[in-house]
Design a protein around this nucleic acid. Structure first.
Lengths: 331, 331
DNA sequence: TTGTAGGCGTTATCAT
DNA sequence: ATGATAACGCCTACAA
């Protein structure tokens, strides 16, 4: 049986409504009373009951984050950053690794004020009544969604990568990534590649596209092995962090040195890029920017429920590391 | 304003207490009434309010997991597995990436039934009143804790690694890991190394121990570079997954091939070991076993609060992969 | 400045 | 089989 404000009230000889006020730092209570109450509260080891609190206030100052794919490590840094920002705004954040539907149901039950979804691959279809009952923001894929989305200009990102490689003197470029039709985010990247190549007047040979058919490192590994055996590009763009991990592994097995024999640029602008055996040059939106945008967007959605907040496209940047090298030097 | 059982009651022409019973599938309500209630509930898009529910029932069927170090990826697989098991037992799981104190305070506020802590490095000191008010289980370090701990027999793990390397013909072994005095878990590993070496009649030279002074890959990288330059072991044991990542990177820069020039065994028995550029042979408790043990322990603690549940030591296993090789072949 | 009372959404115990 | 009604812990008018 945990201690409640009534216990504090009894112990400190005031009414429990006074205790409530004192605990909430109301100006309506005499400083010394407040002090005494706080002391006995502390002494008794009081912890407020959110269930009761939320029940009456209809607010929890908590946001829920739906993150089913924790094994895809590309997002951990983003999660940490978001938690930081949310904390700074005096909110709590709780995570769920369940599927979106289940997680959101739970969050609503717990009376969170808003939820963020990390969508992976195909868009999560939510029951239409869900997003009407609570502010929802997704780090996901633009489309005809009913809830607002923070998305990345994927095409632009790939354009950046292609341009950089061309500047380095490459003309034989390959792309490796998931081309499963249902996954808009991934197909955007692939389309961006075709587009950028065409703009540059370069042709894309059929066997210079590697379809991983999945997003795990192993998918990347298999596809990279296939690709690097049949085709001999001087530069390769990889669709995600995890896929890049597979590419590195494949290259190693095939005794292809990076960047000496092959320049690689990876999608996903995250710190982990620097901790790979070969530091990967990458393109993507820096996570600080993403985090900032997501938090401010969701909080404004919570605090001004009327604010119409549609899809927002974030601008990617190129992060230079050690996996892409000028071709000239090695001619 | 979300829909409550009173709305359902009004809409379906029964009292709200009947609605409550119907929703909870009580046998005390006529099937047709139940059906009607369920229908209108569904029509209205009703979602139960946990705050209210928990308030009266004093149970939430939810456990909280404290996981401040999400950037240390060694644990993601464990988290997923735990979530799976917990779900199978009809519980929810929510995560927090805040510090233990804050996270637990929040969890208690949300009325979770129990909490798990992933302790990283130094032991989290909790206010003594915390763990008396809620079942707590830690994946942590044995010691004079007041709450139960699931720990790993770290020494044994290192012993396994050492024996394996000796069987492969190695006698010049090094250990690299965090030797910061405060961190019991890490120092256990180091002590295990000394012990195993002594048992085998091998001497440990001073410069064959690399102190990373931290647990990030970069710490491992720096220490490995130092170690591999000054000493020339034929085999190396690394204290954690992340440190191993750093070791791989250092070895690559120094043009040391694994396992041809150097055999490596890493601590941490997790799937990610197989996704590194070089698949690492490793020692540690398989995560399925850990997850299983943790979930059953916490749930039994929740359901039988009297069950005294002290520190439990899990037995590590050796997982053979490709980073450790017989020395003979290369003499 | 403090105390009283009503209500938040739900369950559980009574009556009916 | 159904309906009042009293909790659960807290907040917030309003009254004293």
């Amino acid at each position: 049986m945990s201690v409640t404000i009534k216990d504090i009230a009894r112990e400190s000889g005031v009414s429990y409504s006074t205790v409530s006020k004192a605990l909430n730092n109301s100006p309506l209570v005499k400083p010394e009373t407040k002090k005494k109450v706080l002391e006995t509260a502390n002494m008794l080891g009081y912890t407020p009951n959110f269930a009761a609190k939320n029940l009456v206030s209809k607010k929890s100052r908590t946001i829920g984050l739906v993150w089913p794919a924790i094994d895809r490590i590309a997002l951990t840094a983003l999660v940490s950053k978001i938690n930081e920002l949310v904390t700074a705004e005096n909110y709590f954040m709780i995570l769920s690794v369940d599927e979106a539907d289940k997680a959101i149901g739970m969050f609503i039950g717990f009376q969170v004020d808003g939820v963020m979804i990390f969508e992976e691959g195909r868009e999560t279809m939510l029951h239409s009544d869900v997003f009407s009952s609570i502010p929802i923001l997704s780090y996901g894929v633009s489309g005809d969604h009913v809830y607002p989305i923070i998305d990345v200009n994927h095409k632009k990102a790939i354009h950046l990568a292609v341009s950089h490689l061309i500047e380095l003197g490459h003309s034989s470029l390959s792309y490796i990534g998931d081309a499963t039709p249902g996954d808009k985010r991934q197909t955007e990247k692939l389309n961006g590649f075709y587009e950028a190549m065409e703009n540059a007047g370069l042709t894309v040979h059929e066997n210079s596209i590697g379809n991983t058919k999945g997003l795990s490192w192993y998918d990347g590994y298999l596809a990279a092995k296939e690709l690097l055996k049949t085709s001999k590009p001087t530069a390769l763009i990889s669709g995600s962090y995890d896929i890049s991990v597979g590419v590195l592994r494949a290259a190693k097995e095939l005794k292809i040195r990076i960047p000496e024999d092959l320049s690689v640029i990876s999608y996903d602008n995250i710190p982990q890029m620097a901790s790979l055996e070969t530091e990967l040059t990458s393109v993507g939106v820096p996570i600080e920017q993403l985090a900032e945008k997501m938090v401010t967007s969701l909080l404004s959605l919570i605090e001004h429920p009327d604010s119409i907040n549609l899809t927002q496209l974030m601008e990617p940047k190129l992060a230079l590391r050690k996996s892409a090298k000028s071709l000239q030097k090695h001619l």
